[in-house]
Amino acid sequence: MAAADSKIIFAGPVGSGKTSAISCLSDIPVVSTDVDASDETKARKDTTTVAMDYGFLSLEDGTLVHLYGTPGQDRFDFMWQILTEGGLGLVLLIDAARPDPAADMLFYLDAFEKFIAETGAVIGISRVDLSERDIYGLLQQSLIERGQLLPMFEVDARKDEDVNLLVQTLLAVLSAEV
């Protein structure tokens, strides 16, 4: 990663739309790549490789914004810490059609707590069309109880404009740092 480059992390449970979302943004077809942990951090010398989504967005001056999708399974959660290093912020996708979306959200908010506090995050509730329940209301309530204020939208992770909205909103959050 060149010095001026940056990255945005996409996280969420299995099937929540991470690959779809990155595809909407990426200049190249999304690749499922083996990321070498030793690339990402000097501190961690063991070269564990884990498959994750990768794409990028190139800016007019040639700078790259790398887009990483974390592997959905929790057994790779040690990778998340490594991946987030130097990241701009987090897009958290929650699948409305899974049995307990609120528990999913809280799990990821805990796992990325430090990163979110240092940068920012936005939540996209995906696959709303496949759920009968008011998942937005449920997650909003859970955020209020947790005392955390994060932008949240219902999205279709396959739609460019929806994914764009998530990233634009994340940028707005980051821009409001005093």
Partner: peptide, 26 residues
């Protein structure tokens, strides 16, 4: 009136936002 710094990456954020507005790949 406080002037927001947008962190250290104000310029970068603006560039990404601009790129997204142009609307990348359809």
């Amino acid at each position: 009136i406080r002037k927001l710094s947008g962190g250290k990456r104000g310029g970068l954020l603006a560039k990404i936002a601009k790129r997204l507005k142009i609307g990348g790949n359809t």
